[in-house]
Design a protein around this nucleic acid. Structure first.
Lengths: 203, 203
DNA sequence: TATCTGTTGTAACAAAAGTCACAAGTATTG
DNA sequence: CAATACTTGTGACTTTTGTTACAACAGATA
């Protein structure tokens, strides 16, 4: 598993590969486990080798998705935290049983100047995440929820099907279940989707 | 001017200081000039030595602030763009006449692995910007505009006074002037602020 | 002073989003 | 099968935000 990750990162330095193997730990987590909780100090960089994790912010009654971590994806927030001892401002919950590669913060910081390929890796993650978040931000500001929902469905569809409950969508888009149900019904009336049980078909 | 910036960055390597001086250019811009436009390729890292720049996203009829660049602040977006040739997804307009330090992208990338203090600088900028943006994001998702406005006024107040027009505030918070005027009037009725011409006093 | 531009106030209405309450269907599991 | 939890539908209502239209005032300048 680590090999695939190392390959994906285009890590060439043998010493770095050795260091990663030596200092990192691999943990497994069940669906529903919290990987990171708000206000907790982050002490390791977390990379999902397998499974799925949802990283989100919450207020009293609603949640909004920051990003999903799928196989071989890196938690930008934990990476960010590695460079300065700081608390998390998000939660991360396991959505599908997963295997996680944990690298203690001090290594992440050291490697950044020691190994070129690690440096490329971290700056790429930052760049991509930052660009993505800015776009999310202005969509949230300017797009009506109906449009955000429809765009989101399209982006998540596999073979034009999205297997999610209305409640899940609400948590991802930062609203409530009733609102999602209503908007989906409207989309169905406009013949843009067909609704099923935990399933939305885009037409 | 460059000296202060170098000092602020805690740059110790004499060669780096030399390189910065040699490769960078200093430009001046008048109020209203565009530093960066949406969909333009970014070719230099921009650091505001003096003056003020507003970086924002726009749609047809509204704008939302991403961040202000004040004296000695670095444009995270242009930094981000340095690591991969890419188009801007924001605009940057001069709000107060300014002096800008421009560093071509290839240097920014090289230095990141060549000089430790430069590496620290870039990762710090990324970390702070990313953390800040995540918080802005969830505020936008969860906080009513009235609260966002009030919090914003408090954060921008100098001696409890904010010298901005309603139109400016609208552009910063991603809404329209009329809405801001109404919400401010409500805040005044609740004795939270006193309104004047281009001036809001927080009480 | 007259004119122009920018600023603020505000009413009336429309649209979007959130809340509450309840009903009914589906899936899961002891 | 019965009980339970999850899922979806939906009406009625409220709150928030956006839109349109117009009036009045302030400040700068010719």
């Amino acid at each position: 598993m680590i090999d695939i990750f190392i390959q994906k990162l285009k890590i060439t330095e043998p010493e770095l590969i050795k260091e990663i193997r030596e200092c990192s730990t691999i943990t497994t987590h069940k669906k529903g486990d919290f990987i990171i909780k708000e206000n907790e100090y982050i002490k390791v960089l977390k990379i999902v080798l397998e499974g799925k994790v949802r990283v989100y912010q919450a207020n009293e009654d609603r949640e909004i998705l920051i990003y999903y971590l799928n196989s071989m994806e890196t938690c930008t927030l934990s990476l960010s935290a590695c460079f300065e001892d700081c608390k998390s401002n998000v939660n991360a919950i396991v959505e599908e049983d997963c295997t996680i590669l944990n690298i203690p913060v001090r290594f992440v910081k050291d490697w950044n100047f020691k190994y070129k390929s690690w440096n490329n890796f971290t700056t790429n993650i930052f760049r991509e995440s930052y660009m993505h978040l800015i776009n999310q931000y202005s969509n949230l500001a300017f797009q009506p929820l109906k449009d955000r929902l429809y765009d989101y469905l399209i982006s998540k569809a596999e073979n034009s099907i999205v297997k999610k409950s209305h409640q899940q969508l609400a948590k991802e888009l930062g609203t409530t279940r009733e609102v999602i149900s209503r908007l989906l019904k409207n989309l169905e009336k406009e013949n843009k989707v067909v609704l099923g049980q935990k399933e939305i078909i885009i037409s």
